[in-house]
Nucleic acid binder design. Structure first.
Lengths: 108, 108
DNA sequence: AAAGTAAGTTACATAAAGTAAGTAATGGGA
DNA sequence: TCCCATTACTTACTTTATGTAACTTACTTT
């Protein structure tokens, strides 16, 4: 059924970025390492899905999870080289959104 | 609950591209106008979801639907200027996928 | 000691996608 | 002409993904 006439790498990339929240999470971490709770509140995702996505992204080598044994233990998520390399993609999306997406109304 | 600290246009763009199949559909039509059935078989999407997406993308001004009254009527979907302007985004994803996505195994 | 925060997990509810069969319009062949 | 095929969808039903909210564990502050 799934006959990919399309390039498999491209399809994989698309399926990664098409997962809800994934691009937003990466975009957020692009601005520096983040903790679970700050990601949660800054992008408005539920803890359940955030933890699923973080595990998935870690396993795909896009982010890394670091346990920092400070006073109360801090868990920091940051991008790997592979993760940072998605910056141009996110930037292009941002460019496009500035030129073509209307502000204000809900529908376009 | 959804407090967007993030730029609303960017969020809209992301939510568009994060919808399953949307990027793949746009990518396919980038190579020229397509009919319903060719889209369906080339990207392996169900008719139900394809018709939902096409309506949605048309309504968002990204694609246009044309009825061509040839011998048997042909319905052609093509990109609008707004749709074409997503090409750099798709190209960046393709570049990234070539550099960072492994071929072969299912997991990375 | 009680309450709070961080980082999750679990159980249950709803929404989105997949599957498969059905429909309407046209066209071709026996 | 009747029957089957194709295109472009729609409808009904199932499965998967998300959302919501409460709960846990470890540690800290009051």
């Amino acid at each position: 059924m799934k006959q990919s006439i399309i390039c498999p790498q491209f399809e994989k990339a698309i399926s990664l970025l098409s997962q809800r929240w994934t691009a937003l999470i990466i975009n957020q971490i692009l601005s520096g390492p983040h903790r679970f709770c700050t990601l949660q509140s800054s992008i408005g995702i539920s803890g359940k899905v955030l933890s699923e996505r973080l595990k998935d992204l870690e396993q795909k080598g896009i982010i890394k999870r670091e346990v920092i044994p400070e006073t109360p233990v801090i868990i920091e998520y940051s991008l790997t080289e592979k993760g940072y390399s998605l910056e141009p993609v996110l930037k292009e999306i941002e460019n496009w959104s500035q030129s073509w997406v209307e502000i204000g109304s809900e529908e376009t």
